Amino acid sequence: MGRGRVELKRIENKINRQVTFAKRRNGLLKKAYELSILCEAEVGLIIFSSRGRLFEFCSSPSMVKTLERYQKCSYSASEAAAPLKDTEKNYQEYLKLKSRVESLQLNQRNLLGEDLAPLNMTQLDMLENQIELSLTRIRSSKSQTMLDQLFDLKRKEQNLQDANRDLKRKLLHVGSDNLLQMTWQHDQASGSNNQEEPEPQSNELFPTACDTPMQIGYEQLCADQMGRECTNHIDGFGPGWM
């Protein structure tokens, strides 16, 4: 009779587990050696025990070269499989986006009042509520925008009024300064005209009457002398020396 099938599960008995590990490890190493000899295959076997001990077998001279060859083959296979996986992933994403776009387009047509025949009463009620909610939001946004514009216009009006008030104040100030300057210039001009007005010249040719009327016969003498001087000047001759 042959041995029965061994149930594959962890051996709880520590001694039995160690014995089984040693027997099967030796058998696995023997099989790897036979495979490399019979089939001329490059075999690399690495075993770590539960205590961390290393057991290995390599048909090639260096385990490192075997591992490098394994890494190259593994990376090449993964790189070759990567484009296929990316293509499949992109196609799935494309299908999701396509269905989403079709749903949005159908919803847009329903909001515009098109393609309503396939909808039932519940869907129509939901569509009506959605439209009413959208209208409420639109009206609220419109009112808020109008209020903002009104506040901006009022603020601009107040700024213009302030600027106009400042300009009026500056204009009054400049006007008063100009009036004072014009008054000062007028006073200066009046003073200069008064200074430049020529004084009346005394008539040397006709001396005034003597202020000594008390002397007897002096007034008649002065009058006769003035008459003689006028006659001499008119004739072109001056009075002679006595």
Score class of each variant (00 low, 15 high):
M182Y: 10
S192D: 10
S143G: 04
L35P: 03
K156V: 05
N194W: 12
D211P: 08
Q181Y: 11
Y75N: 09
N107H: 15
S192Q: 13
S62M: 11
V6I: 14
G113K: 10
D86I: 09
T208N: 02
F21D: 05
A77K: 11
L116V: 14
F206Y: 01
A77M: 06
Q225I: 09
K23V: 15
R53H: 15
L135Q: 03
P239C: 01
K98L: 15
E229R: 00
D125H: 14
N107V: 15
D148N: 02
K65T: 12
I131Y: 03
E42Q: 01
K170A: 10
A41G: 01
D125M: 13
E204A: 06
I138V: 07
Y91N: 09
E93L: 06
T145G: 01
N203L: 00
L179E: 06
R69L: 00
Q161C: 11
L95T: 07
K85H: 07
L106C: 13
Q225D: 04
Y218Q: 13
P83L: 08
Q201A: 04
I131K: 06
V6S: 09
E88M: 08
C39L: 00
S176E: 15
E102Q: 13
F206W: 01
R17M: 12
R100M: 15
A163G: 08
S50C: 07
N120G: 07
K65E: 13
K156M: 04
K168W: 12
E68G: 05
E114W: 15
G52F: 04
A209G: 04
Y94I: 14
Q225R: 05
L45V: 05
A80R: 14
S140R: 07
F48D: 05
I46A: 05
N90L: 12
Q220V: 03
T208I: 04
F206L: 01
V43I: 00
Y91H: 11
N203V: 00
E229L: 05
T145R: 07
G227A: 03
A223R: 04
L172K: 13
Q215G: 04
Q108V: 14
K9E: 10
S60K: 13
L147T: 03
D211F: 08
T212H: 13
K156P: 01
L106I: 13
S62A: 08
G217D: 03
S49W: 06
S103E: 14
Y218H: 14
D115R: 07
S78H: 10
G4E: 11
Q181D: 10
S49E: 03
Q92G: 00
D115K: 03
S50Q: 08
G236Y: 01
P213G: 09
F48Q: 09
V6G: 05
Q105H: 15
R51K: 13
K142H: 07
P118L: 01
S78T: 11
N178S: 10
L67R: 07
I234A: 02
Q130C: 12
W241M: 07
D115Q: 08
D211L: 03
Q18T: 14
K14S: 14
A81R: 03
R69T: 01
I11P: 03
